[in-house]
Amino acid sequence: MNRAERLRNHLMALPPALYLLLFFAVPSVMMLFASFRYPGEYGGLAPWYYIEDGQLSLDFTLENWLRLFESGIYLGLLFKSLGYALLTTLICTIMAYPLALMIARSQKRFRDLLLLLVILPFWSNFLVRIYAWMIIFSPQGALTIGLNHVTGALGLEPISLMFSSTAVITCLVYVHLPFMILPLYANLEKHDNRLLDAAQDLGANRFQCFWLITWPQSLPGIYAGAILVFIPSLGIFAIPDLLGGTNGIMIGNVIKQQFVESRDWPFGSVLSLVLTGITLLLVLLAAKLGKTGGANSGT
């Protein structure tokens, strides 16, 4: 490669790199700084230096970080959000597996259509998909009324689906399900069915065929899907905001609150950085699992 070509390469990378430095890297670094600063009197941040008797002093603090650990509320909420995201990932795996397997074992000419049917709802607006569940879970909705006929007949208290953790997790599953189906399908599609035939010939029953052959081979697909479901579920705020009420809030709601309502930016930054840290760890873990999990890690 000659010099002119190298120069062209760098010139090509320059505009997008500069843009993302300015609008992705710099804001992240500013947030890191903000987490060590004092909140401003009217929201925002207090100045990070002050001049007294002609002497410049810096004004940074660890208070915001300590606050995270001092009050159990925020750590508790973080663990609760991790729990919600984990449960969402589990339910998504359980629901995605049969569908992905069904598509992978369908005739080739139907597969594209069946996949498109998975992706289609996922392209409708995010808020519309949440709104759909607001209708379904509403107290006047057929579902709630029907369930309360049952609970009434059994002599139990009437239940409310709206503003509950059930509503939040159902919607989290609904919104993220395609993220599990697609990588899982990409993996399952590549399996060699002759292995299953061979196992059957050697006397394995259907459960053994699945558990000893299909399942272990599909793990890379599940890991890929789990990352794609877990990370966005963990950071979500719109779903608990609209469906969760006071009991269903997650860490995303508190971050939003710190930045928009109570305007405590330093503490909001601390919570955001914790979320960033968890995300980075998971991405690294996924990259590692993807490498050791075999070649067909899906996309």
Binding site: I231, F237, T279
Partner: peptide, 16 residues
């Protein structure tokens, strides 16, 4: 930016 949860991109840009 694709890997990060949306909210993090949103609040860090708001801050900047």
């Amino acid at each position: 930016p694709i890997a990060m949860p949306d909210i993090l991109i949103g609040v860090s840009l708001l801050l900047m």
